[in-house]
C-alpha cells in the first residue's frame, strides 16, 4: 500500500481527478472518499491504496484511529500512515472482523455504521464498548508508536527532536523561559 501526498495546488492523486474523487464521495461516509481499492481525503490531499482490506474498512479504521488519539491539528494522512500496516494478508481478517463488530455496535446505537455517526462523542461511546477487545487494544497500542513516532507531526507539539547536530541547546534557549 502507498500513501500519496498531493502538492498543495495539484488536483491529481495517483491518477484520480479531484472531481472524480468528489463524485464517488457521495457513496461514502462524510470524511473520506472510498473508491475501489483506495481511500482518499475529501479534499484529495492524499489517498491510500488498499490491497487486502476493503477500502471502507480502511476508512473506518482511519476514523477510529483519530477517535482514539484525536489531535485536531494533525491531518488524516498521518493517521492513515499509522494504520496502513494492517493492510496485509496476515492482519486483514482480524481488522475486517474488528470493524464489522464496530459497525454492529453502531447499528445497535441507531447509526448506519461507525462512520455515519457525525459526533465524536457518539463514536467514542461505541469505542468504549469495544475497548477491552483484543482488536481495539491492538489498534490503540500500535498507534502509540505508529502515530507519535512520525517525526513530521512533532512540530505540532512544539517538540524539536534531534538536537546534537545543532550543538544542543546551550546557545539555543535551554533556559530561555521568560514568563516565570
Amino acid at each position: 500500500m502507498t500513501v500519496a501526498h498531493n502538492s498543495p495546488s495539484g488536483s491529481n492523486v495517483r491518477g484520480l481527478t479531484r472531481r472524480g474523487l468528489l463524485a464517488r464521495a457521495m457513496a461514502a461516509g462524510a470524511t473520506f472518499v472510498v473508491g475501489s481499492g483506495f481511500v482518499a481525503a475529501r479534499d484529495a490531499a492524499w489517498a491510500v491504496e488498499t490491497t487486502t482490506l476493503k477500502p471502507a474498512t480502511m476508512a473506518t479504521l482511519i476514523q477510529m484511529a483519530r477517535d482514539i488519539y484525536p489531535h485536531d491539528r494533525i491531518a488524516d494522512r498521518y493517521y492513515a500512515i499509522a494504520v496502513k500496516g494492517y493492510d496485509t494478508a496476515e492482519k486483514a481478517q482480524m481488522v475486517e472482523e474488528g470493524i464489522t463488530g464496530l459497525n454492529l455496535v453502531a447499528k445497535a446505537q441507531g447509526f448506519d455504521d461507525y462512520l455515519s455517526a457525525g459526533w465524536e462523542k457518539d463514536r467514542v461511546t461505541m469505542l468504549r464498548m469495544i475497548e477491552h477487545t483484543p482488536f481495539f487494544q491492538t489498534v490503540r497500542a500500535g498507534l502509540v508508536t505508529g502515530l507519535y513516532n512520525q517525526k513530521e507531526i512533532w512540530p505540532v507539539f512544539g517538540y524539536e527532536g534531534e538536537s546534537f547536530s545543532h550543538g544542543g541547546y546551550i546557545e539555543r534557549g535551554f533556559n530561555d523561559i521568560d514568563w516565570l
Binding site: D67, I68, Y69, P70, H71, R73, V124, R140, V144, T145, L147, Y148, N149, W154, F157, G158, Y159
Partner: peptide, 24 residues
C-alpha cells in the same frame, strides 16, 4: 513526544489523553 505518548498514561486514550499531549 514519543515516550510521553507511551508512558504518560499507558493504555489511556481519547481527549483527556490527547489534550494533555497537545500542550506538550
Amino acid at each position: 513526544v514519543p515516550f510521553m505518548a507511551a508512558f504518560m498514561d499507558p493504555g489511556g486514550w481519547g481527549r483527556e489523553f490527547t489534550s494533555a499531549l497537545d500542550s506538550y
